[in-house]
Amino acid sequence: MKSRNDELLIIFSKNPVAGRVKTRLASAIGDAEALRIYEQLRELTKQATTGINASKAIAYSDFIPNTDLLLAPDTEAWLQQGSDLGERMHRAFVKGFSLGFSRVALIGTDCPELSPFILDLAFRKLDACDVVLGPARDGGFYLAALKQPFPELFLGRTWSTSSVLNDSQRIIREHGRSCDLLPALSDIDTFDDLRASGLWTP
């Protein structure tokens, strides 16, 4: 992978297939409309990550596509590995560090409020702490950034609950690591999230 510096941004993306993405949202608006919203979110993610001063890898859920809106000449395509979200995130971090990067951040494609400023801030905050988390307003996190692998933060966890962020902070403290937080942003997982975001135009 061509590196502009020692920073790597990993973007977790589900392959955009109707019925396989935004399932909670689809229960309210249907599979086709949920897929359209998901593609809109991925486009916003592309806009937020284009031009940042970090190398980028797109980690796909099921297969590596020949072409995709997130793939560009300066990005690499990976396949997520692991039996659950935590293991997939941990393995992605391990791969990033094994490639020689000293700062690795990971995001998903569910946060329309993400910006280049937030991403740059995440890497800068690693100057003074071990872990950076971006709190999502639903109690999870939209970004995690590390300077070394931290398996305990990801393995054996329960995900998609309102206590994910608080549990993560407790784990970080228990293992003697320091943590800083980014501004809280909103993910889009449910129809209420979508209506609040302003992206819904029925």
Rank of each mutant, 00 (worst) to 15 (best):
R42F: 04
K46C: 11
A48S: 13
T49Y: 08
T50L: 11
I52C: 03
N53L: 04
A54I: 02
I58A: 07
S61G: 04
D62E: 14
D62A: 12
N66F: 13
N66I: 00
N66M: 02
T67P: 00
T67H: 15
T67D: 12
D68Q: 06
L69Y: 00
D74P: 09
T75I: 04
T75Q: 02
E76D: 12
W78A: 08
L79T: 01
G82C: 00
G82T: 05
S83V: 09
G86E: 07
F93M: 10
K95N: 10
F97I: 03
F97W: 13
S98N: 15
G100D: 12
F101M: 05
F101C: 07
V104D: 04
V104G: 11
L114G: 03
F117Q: 12
L121A: 04
L121E: 08
A122D: 10
F123A: 07
F123R: 12
F123Y: 09
L126V: 03
D127R: 06
D127I: 00
D127G: 00
C129E: 01
V131D: 10
G134N: 01
G134I: 02
P135G: 08
P135W: 10
D138N: 15
F141R: 04
F141I: 00
Y142A: 04
Y142E: 03
L143M: 13
A145E: 06
A145H: 11
K147I: 14
P149L: 12
P149N: 13
P151M: 07
P151W: 12
S160V: 02
S163Q: 15
N166Q: 14
D167V: 10
S168M: 09
R173C: 02
